[in-house]
Nucleic acid binder design. Structure first.
Lengths: 116, 116
DNA sequence: TCATATACATAATATTCTTATGTATGCATC
DNA sequence: GATGCATACATAAGAATATTATGTATATGA
């Protein structure tokens, strides 16, 4: 498990990516998929996930569909056309961003002969 | 320039990395170095930077030294031993994290023959 | 029956960021 | 000498997003 603060700012992008690959998913399914893909290293918390899903819906990025599974309700989320577009952009931007971050974090920033 | 929300959660790690390579730096210098390293793609805002530096000082991660440059004051930040340790950990953890994120964001998550 | 998994949700709080604002010096140029 | 830009610090209000805790309820296997 990573320390929590690394995940900040990535939640939206993760959700959009998964929805862009899966046509439709429900909240709990998203948490499980992320656990699986990251070998338990990233675990989404419900208190962050559900508010974000609601926000995406309010924005028109996703639409929902409620399905009854036995007596339980399951709420599916699916990208709108606008959402699909946004997903592509966000994912690409994030991939570029992490390459930039790699440059920063791998870079030797100064020559300090007294340390060698 | 990246959209702002990508930078979230990375500020602390960026600062620690730069300080671990440069023995000591002042706030403005950090903003300029990041601009330079990222070809202007990441620009730290002062409203985020200074509070974070103050927090790092309060935690004992860095110590400060004020230098007079003409009539202006410049405040240098330098990692403590504890800070050096933390810097290594945070940077390594972040590099691992972005590899994990790459897995998530590059992964084809399901086989959907009706889409091909 | 008891624990765990599935499945949703919200509320209080904390953290961290943006945006705006303030102070002040140094320097080049019009 | 005024004006603008760069240097250099700082804080405050507000927004966004996360954590932690809690609540509801069904399903299932030991």
């Amino acid at each position: 498990m990573y320390s929590n603060d690394l995940i900040k700012g990535t939640l939206r992008t993760i959700i959009l990516k998964l929805l862009s690959e899966n046509t439709r998913m429900y909240g709990y399914e998203i948490t499980q998929k992320v656990k699986e893909l990251t070998d338990d290293e990233i675990q989404l918390t419900e208190g962050a996930l559900y508010p974000m899903l609601h926000k995406l819906e309010a924005e028109g990025t996703v639409v929902t569909e409620q399905i009854n599974i036995g007596k339980r309700v399951r709420k599916y989320y699916q990208l709108t056309d606008q959402g699909k577009e946004e997903a592509k952009e966000k994912v690409n931007e994030f991939l570029r961003f992490i390459d930039t971050m790699k440059d920063v974090l791998n870079h030797k920033n100064s020559f300090q002969p007294w340390l060698s």
